Amino acid sequence: MNDDDESSPPLPQGTRNYLTPQGYARLRAELMSLLDEERPKVVEIVSWAAKNGDRSENGDYLYGKKRLREIDRRIHFLTRRLDIAEITDPTRHHGSDQIFFGASVTWCNARGEERTVTIKGIDEADSLAGEVSWVSPIARALLKAHEGDEVTVMTPAGPERLEIVRVSYPKPVTA
């Protein structure tokens, strides 16, 4: 699948775009902001600049057209991603010790080092916040395992065994 956006990796062929409810809301808000606010402003600037004569040296016109293409590309990307989105609420697994989408998992490697990651959607995972995409090698190794299990993940240095120390999910919000 070619999503015309190099900033996000492609989804595996034939899969849904799994997202948490928060991730879906964030992508949808970005799409609506582009459609309702940013794109109309840029169209207005380009329209105004086009009326000013020579377009070949008109910075407002040239920049505006470039920005409009970027916005349209992002709108197309977001629309396609949201069309195939499958919202998966991790709170429904609260209390489970098995690893599914949305789990926060703490593991320990052979050197005794512990690390915690949260498995999120490909369009919402932020590695700086300790989040990994569900299609990443570490997430694929962890998925469906249980607290206390050992899994093997392939790393650039070769296979590494990890012991799953803790599995947690967010608590459901009660109204």
Rank of each mutant, 00 (worst) to 15 (best):
K41I: 05
T118G: 01
D72F: 03
T15Y: 10
P40D: 02
N2Q: 07
H93Q: 11
G112F: 11
L78P: 01
A175L: 13
T152L: 00
E37N: 11
G121I: 04
M32P: 02
D123C: 06
A25I: 02
L11P: 08
D36F: 07
T20P: 00
K65H: 07
V153I: 04
R39Y: 05
A125V: 05
E113D: 08
E86G: 00
D123Q: 09
R28I: 08
L11W: 01
E113P: 05
V43G: 03
P10R: 06
E113Q: 15
V135W: 14
L31E: 06
R166C: 09
E114C: 02
Q13G: 08
V167Q: 03
R73A: 15
P159K: 14
T15I: 09
R74K: 15
G158A: 07
H146D: 04
Y24S: 10
D36L: 08
H146N: 12
W107A: 01
S136C: 01
I87D: 06
M1L: 10
K51C: 08
F100R: 15
P137A: 01
S127P: 10
G95T: 06
S8D: 11
D36E: 12
S127I: 07
E70T: 13
L142C: 13
V43H: 06
E114K: 03
I164G: 00
P90I: 05
F100E: 15
G23E: 15
S8H: 15
T116C: 10
P156N: 05
R39L: 09
R67S: 03
N17E: 14
F77K: 08
M32E: 15
A145I: 00
R67F: 04
H94P: 10
P12N: 15
L82H: 04
R16M: 15
E30Y: 07
Y169W: 11
R73E: 14
L142K: 01
M154H: 08
R69S: 13
K66F: 13
S33I: 02
V173K: 12
I164A: 00
K65G: 00
I71Q: 00
I84C: 12
E37D: 10
D123T: 05
D5I: 05
R74D: 10
T79I: 04
R161T: 12
A49S: 10
A110Y: 02
V117M: 01
R16C: 11
D3I: 12
T155Q: 00
A145M: 02
A110C: 10
K120W: 07
A129R: 09
E70R: 14
V105H: 02
E113M: 11
P40R: 07
Q98G: 05
I84E: 12
G148I: 04
V46W: 05
P137T: 01
S168R: 13
S136T: 02
N52Y: 12
T152M: 00
